[in-house]
Design a protein around this nucleic acid. Structure first.
Lengths: 340, 340
DNA sequence: CTTCGTATGTCAATCGGTTGACATGTGCAA
DNA sequence: TTGCACATGTCAACCGATTGACATACGAAG
């Protein structure tokens, strides 16, 4: 492998000069700069990032911590974060950690050992405390904590409101919200609050059902959902706080002979891709994930650069009307690129 | 941050000794070893991986190269590879590259600059050549090349065969295979071969339809699929070489008023999770992804350790019968953990 | 008593860059 | 003529480990 010394020799300059070119510091004439670039080109030189990182004391790497990768929402998130990170010439160091303490500890150790420049994390539980006290640049994703941690969230409150409004608009009288673990710091909290508030405003009867953490991890909500549908045949509208739940509600509704949207209207949340591949397609609340990821990365960069970053406004969500609430859209398909 | 020197001082030994403990080399008495561990514990010492990697000349990192992250199959793959890599105390450096040459070039540069110890890649096109000539430890995933590159594949041929057998078993006479880009090095090649062969063996009429690369990237196959279903109303069985395609066939079939499985039977491939969330659930060919990932990582480790690794046998696939081919299973749901 | 295996230390180079201190030299403006 | 901005070089320390060469003990086996 060619080193900076080889380049210096080839360009007939000092190592320091090459370093200056590489890092854009000090005075460099255009002519010298070109010579150095030419030498790098000729030798296929690629700076050793390990060495640079070692000396720089951080590694142009963003630690990304998610509960699981194999999930439509998180894999989308990772894809976008990776793209934006690369735009800043950062790599990502990916860890998936079910909310077990050990996992998170191991992961933090990994982040530190590899001198990540900052962390983007979205954990389910409050075990986040460990991360927070690790005190390095970080951005929480979809976790608004009481503490003043920089976080990127979408407007979950409005999302809940929009879902209720849609159900009301299409004539529901007796609705339910089905959410994951309730915790006011988790997104389900705001969504529930917005939904319940709007329901009472619209005069709809509203019930709450909460899925377990185990179901979230397994990504299978069937037992609870089956029970809910069986025990509450009078429900005419359901708001699920994630599309994965909504999709399974749709599936079970059909199994039980309910027609969607005739007998039961369903609204999901997230607008992940698979909402497009169900029959009917799922009405859902669109999160501006692209923008959220972009912002998360930018905020992290700002922190790494030592700039103070304040509390962020939540990003606006949007209702996407599809066949699961609108009969007339039953066979009209929207595309992934129509949004976002 | 505490360094190896701090540990040495605390344990009252030489830096060399700490390093010996850390790397299990040379003679170390149990007593000293314990003292060193205690010191590390007390100081919350975590060796700086950057420094270790620099001196070791590779970084205990596996470069992982996929076409996209936001895809049920690849996100599953990444999740598993991450898990197995960590078992070997390796990190993964994730790159997603649409098959554009530049992307791949950029990615290889990234891998080299970060001194990855090896690469696991699964690219769609033949642009793989660039990777191959990069000549470092590597394993191809689901890409069996003519060249003698170490690759991990499932038994695509049998998969195609099993799909045809299932369609025949449930009474199909006139079937089609819908696949992604055909290339004998890509999995669709073997699947097609197995399927077509079995069809002629069973005396089923079989047609072939090929989706474009653009559709693969967008993950939306609607236009082509719609056309196929419209122009061939006589089809009674479809084998899609990926579940994502199968799912959309299912969706469009319903849109066109075809009952699945009564009028049309569908078999997918991969057994990704979302096959569980359709109505009916999708019959599919299960790939032993867990095992494949585990093997991919092991093979890479072997290469990194300098051991020669031979050509690998493909791993066996399995037919998972579900509602899209079996009326009696229409409302009987299998779980993700039932397989694998 | 020698010799070897075990256990540890010292020293310094190395991995491949970064960076600060300082020297030198050129050319232009005041 | 002086002074300063620009351009580059030399030297050496440093980031935090790893590693080889070599020295020095101690205890047990031969």
């Amino acid at each position: 492998m060619t080193t900076i010394k080889d380049v210096a020799k080839k360009a007939d300059v000092a190592v320091t000069t090459v370093s200056r070119v590489l890092n854009n510091r000090g005075y460099i004439s255009d002519e010298t700069r070109q010579r150095v670039y030419a030498a790098m080109e000729a030798l296929h030189y690629e700076p050793n990032e390990l060495a640079r990182s070692l000396s720089r004391k951080h590694s142009r790497t963003i630690g990304v911590l998610v509960p699981t990768i194999m999930h439509p929402f998180y894999s989308k998130l990772i894809e976008y974060v990776e793209i934006y990170a690369r735009q800043h010439e950062y790599n990502i160091l990916l860890y998936s950690a079910k909310a077990e303490k050990d996992d998170i500890q191991r992961c933090l150790v990994g982040f530190k050992a590899n001198r990540v420049s900052g962390i983007i994390w979205c954990l389910r539980t409050q075990s986040a405390a460990q991360i927070i006290k690790s005190s390095m640049p970080m951005v929480a994703f979809e976790r608004s904590l009481d503490l003043n941690i920089t976080a990127v969230c979408c407007d979950n409150l409005s999302g809940g409101f929009l879902a209720a409004k849609e159900l009301n608009d299409v004539g529901c009288k007796n609705v339910a919200i089905i959410s994951g673990t309730m915790d006011k710091n988790l997104p389900a909290g705001g969504r529930t609050e917005g939904f319940i508030g709007a329901c009472s405003q619209y005069g709809m009867k509203a019930q709450r059902f909460i899925m377990t953490e185990e179901e979230f991890i397994a990504r299978e909500y069937w037992p609870s959902l089956t029970r809910i549908l069986m025990e509450h045949p009078d429900l005419d509208g359901i708001f699920a706080t994630s599309d994965l739940i909504a999709m399974q509600v749709l599936q079970l509704a059909k199994k039980q002979g309910l027609k969607v949207p005739d007998d039961l209207k369903i609204v999901g949340f997230d607008d992940v891709e698979l909402t497009l591949f169900t029959i009917p397609q799922l009405t859902t609340i669109h999160q501006p994930l692209h923008e959220m990821c972009s912002r998360a990365v930018s905020l992290l960069m700002a922190q790494i650069a030592g700039q103070p970053v304040g509390i962020q406004e939540p990003l606006p969500v949007r209702l996407i009307k599809r066949g699961s609430t609108r009969k007339e859209l039953e066979f009209e398909f929207t595309h992934a690129n129509d949004n976002d």
